[in-house]
C-alpha cells in the first residue's frame, strides 16, 4: 500500500535547547492505518506531531503527505493544506465557545465552501454515528467532556482528511468517555478508512492502534505491531514500556 505520510531523517532543534527535540526520525504511515505514538514527557511526541501537521517546521529532513513535500509550503499554502488534507483532535477539545456543536462541526466544510445543504446532511450523519445528534444545537459549555471530545473528533473527520492527528485525545476524559471516544475513532478508521496518527502516553488508548512507535529523547526506540486482539496488544505495549523504563539509564538504541 502506498504510504500517506513519509518522514525522512527528521530533526528539530530549539535554540538554547539541551539537545535535539527530534533526532533523525524516519517512518511512514500507510493509508487507512491507525498509528500510535508513545513516549514519556519530553520524548519529542508533540514536536513530531507539530512538524508533521505543518504547525512547526523541522530543522532538517523531509515530510511527504500524499506526495506533497511540506518543506515547499509557505504560510498560505500551509493553511490551504491543513484545510484540505489534515484533521486535528486536541486534549483540551478546542471547540469554539461561541458556536453551537452543529456549527463547530460545520466550520471545516464551510471553509472549503461546500454548499450548505451538503454540510447539514454530513453533520447530521456524522453526529448520529458519534452519538451526539441530540446535542447539535447546544453550546460546548453545555456538554460533558466526552461529548465535547466526540464533537471535536467529528469536526476533524467530517472533511475526510488524508490524515487525522490526535494529540492526547483522551487526556482529559474519564475512562468511560475515553473508551467511547477510542471506539468512535477505531470505527472511523475501519469504516471510513481515516488514517490516524495519535499521540498518547496511555497504553490503554494506544492499544486501539494498529502500530505503535515509542519515542525516547527525540527518536524512535521501539516499534510494535498489533497481531492479535486489543487485550493482547495492550499487554505487549505495557511490557514493552516497562522494559524501556528499565533501560532508561542505559545508552539508547536506534530502531
Amino acid at each position: 500500500m502506498k504510504p500517506v505520510l513519509e518522514a525522512r531523517q527528521l530533526s528539530k532543534r530549539y535554540p538554547g535547547g539541551p539537545g535535539p527535540a527530534l533526532d533523525s526520525v524516519t517512518f511512514s504511515v500507510d493509508r487507512g492505518e491507525f498509528v500510535g505514538i508513545m513516549g514519556a514527557s519530553g520524548s519529542g511526541k508533540t514536536t513530531l506531531l507539530n512538524v508533521l501537521s505543518t504547525i512547526d517546521r523541522p530543522t532538517s529532513g523531509k515530510i511527504l503527505i500524499s506526495g506533497t513535500d511540506l518543506g515547499t509550503l509557505n504560510d498560505s499554502d500551509g493553511a490551504g493544506f491543513r484545510k484540505d488534507r489534515l484533521g486535528f483532535i486536541f486534549q483540551e477539545y478546542f471547540l469554539l465557545d461561541s458556536l453551537t456543536i452543529r456549527e463547530n462541526i460545520s466550520v471545516p466544510l464551510a471553509l472549503k465552501k461546500i454548499p450548505a445543504r451538503k454540510i447539514s446532511a454530513a453533520v447530521q450523519r456524522l453526529a448520529e454515528r458519534f452519538g451526539i445528534a441530540g446535542q447539535l444545537d447546544k453550546y460546548p459549555a453545555e456538554l460533558s467532556g466526552g461529548q465535547r471530545q466526540r464533537a471535536s473528533a467529528a469536526r476533524a473527520i467530517i472533511k475526510r482528511p488524508d490524515i487525522l492527528f490526535a494529540d492526547e485525545p483522551t487526556g482529559a476524559l474519564d475512562s468511560a468517555s475515553s473508551t467511547g471516544l477510542l471506539n468512535v475513532l477505531s470505527e472511523a478508521n475501519r469504516e471510513l478508512q481515516t488514517t490516524i496518527l495519535m499521540v498518547t502516553h496511555d497504553a490503554y488508548a494506544a492499544s486501539f492502534a494498529d502500530r505503535i512507535l515509542i519515542f525516547r529523547d527525540g527518536h524512535i526506540v521501539s516499534e510494535l505491531f498489533r497481531t492479535g486482539d486489543r487485550q493482547d496488544f495492550y499487554r505487549d505495549i505495557a511490557s514493552e514500556t516497562a522494559r524501556l523504563d528499565g533501560l532508561r539509564t542505559q545508552p539508547r538504541q536506534h530502531v
Partner: peptide, 18 residues
C-alpha cells in the same frame, strides 16, 4: 481572551490573512 479560538482556526486551515 479568545486567542485559543484563533489558534484553532489556524490549525483548521484558516490562513493568517483570513
Amino acid at each position: 481572551d479568545n486567542k485559543n479560538d484563533y489558534r484553532i482556526l489556524w490549525k483548521m486551515g484558516y490562513s493568517r490573512k483570513r
